[in-house]
């Protein structure tokens, strides 16, 4: 079974990747794998012991983004089957690990203040440098 992998974190890159990935999965009759990472920032942990509710909050935020992405896919390409992976850890390594068997991994580059070229974010760069599967890089052109 073919799989198209997209990282979901609420950014413009994620939205563009989701749209591209959904379309690609429809064409290939592939499963669309939506991957999200969550963790409690070190800055919070350093303030003392964080209660369970802090952990729940960060996990639930990522969970909600995944649910939103699944709903978006149902709207864009209703016949595409989604699977979701929610893993605790750093975004780049989680995306890389959870997309190891994908047919195609979707990444994006976008405009950043003060730079003329579109640039890769740290997650896309991590994937591009380490993935052993084909990676598509989508340019998010300024409107």
């Amino acid at each position: 079974m073919e799989t198209v992998a997209v990282f979901i974190n609420g950014t413009e890159e994620a939205a563009a990747s989701l749209e591209f990935g959904a379309h690609e999965a429809a064409l290939r009759k592939a499963t669309l794998r939506l991957i999200a990472a969550w963790d409690v920032p070190a800055s919070i942990l350093s303030g003392g012991v964080a209660g369970q509710e802090v952990y729940d909050e960060f996990r639930e935020t990522a969970e909600a983004l995944l649910a939103e992405a699944v709903a978006k896919v149902a709207e864009l390409e209703p016949e595409v089957v989604c699977e979701t992976r929610l893993v605790r850890g750093q975004p780049g390594p989680v995306f890389l690990e959870e997309s190891r068997d994908a047919t195609l991994i979707v990444a994006a580059r976008k405009r950043q203040a003060g730079i003329k070229e579109l640039v890769l974010g740290s997650i896309s760069r991590h994937i591009l440098n380490h993935a052993e599967r084909p990676v598509v890089v989508i340019p998010i052109l300024p409107r």
């Binding site: 380490h130 084909p134 598509v136 890089v137």
Partner: peptide, 25 residues
């Protein structure tokens, strides 16, 4: 080097999506 100079150039300047295909393992 992880990315060749050509793939790097194309990825940064192309007007459309670019797929970077790794060598077959």
């Amino acid at each position: 080097l992880l990315l060749g100079s050509v793939s790097q150039h194309v990825m940064h300047h192309a007007a459309c999506p670019v797929v970077i295909v790794p060598p077959v393992k």
